[in-house]
């Protein structure tokens, strides 16, 4: 035990501006993919309720593909594969787009599962009152499935923050990439990755606290 943390501290102080900027990139990316993934998940979930069997099959195929494929494979496909057919996108665009498709699929699956907890008579009552399909989704289905799926969606938000570190593999300079560079330069591998883990733990703790607050605010008796 021990470790040369004072030496790492010197390195961190020297790289502080770029590390803060990289940490900002991580937070930004996590927020974007969490919000995009939630919107995308709701959209995909809505399409799973389509009357069209073809649409449902396509959507279920999409969900299966993205849940069954490692995210990194898809990111590499976009980053290394697309330029071979003349399409070149920035690492940020690839990260946002890749995560959007992946996280949307997972969130949609959570919402589909939560949908099974809805009472069919509630949806029928809304139909009998004269609400349209879109209104029923917006006013009855979505508010309930979002609450029922809240724990799974919160876990996904935590996962997003942790998974965002893999974008360093497509040359996107976020926090992990910054720390990786320090480790390579200083050879303080244990110390650097230990501190990196602590920072991610701190970020995740903030999300957990925020989620708990949201949960307390939106919890409804009989619907959790």
């Amino acid at each position: 035990m021990g470790g040369n943390f004072p030496a790492l501290l010197v390195q961190l102080q020297a790289d502080l501006p770029s590390l803060i900027s990289a940490l900002g990139e991580t937070v930004l990316l996590s927020v974007i993919i969490t919000i995009n993934g939630l919107i995308g998940g709701l959209l995909v979930f809505y399409l799973t309720l389509s009357n069209s069997g073809v649409v449902r099959k396509i959507i279920n195929g999409y969900i299966s593909i993205f849940i069954g494929t490692p995210l990194i494979v898809f990111l590499f496909l976009l980053y290394y594969g697309l330029p071979t057919i003349g399409i070149r996108l920035s690492p940020f665009v690839i990260a946002v787009f890749g995560f959007f498709l992946n996280v949307s699929a997972y969130n949609a699956r959570f919402l589909v599962t939560a949908y099974k907890g809805l009472l069919p008579t509630e949806l029928e009552a809304a139909k009998a009152q004269g609400f349209s399909r879109g209104q029923i989704f917006r006013l009855v289905t979505a508010p309930q499935v979002l609450r029922l799926a809240a724990p799974a969606l919160a876990s996904q938000a935590i996962q997003n923050t942790k998974d965002s570190s893999i974008v360093f593999l497509i040359q996107y300079t976020e926090f992990f990439a910054g720390m990786q560079e320090i480790a390579m330069r200083s050879f303080l591998f244990f110390e650097t990755y230990f501190v990196t883990a602590l920072v991610y733990l701190l970020l995740v703790s903030v999300i957990v606290l925020a989620m708990r607050r949201l949960e307390r605010r939106f919890t409804i008796p009989g619907l959790s």
Binding site: L119, T121, E124, A125, G130, Q144, I220, G222
Partner: peptide, 20 residues
């Protein structure tokens, strides 16, 4: 049909209140 449904109040066996 939606406009006509608004003129017909429907009360269900299991109440069907919106739980949220």
């Amino acid at each position: 049909v939606r406009a006509l449904r608004q003129l017909i109040g429907f009360v269900f066996q299991n109440f069907a209140l919106y739980r949220h």
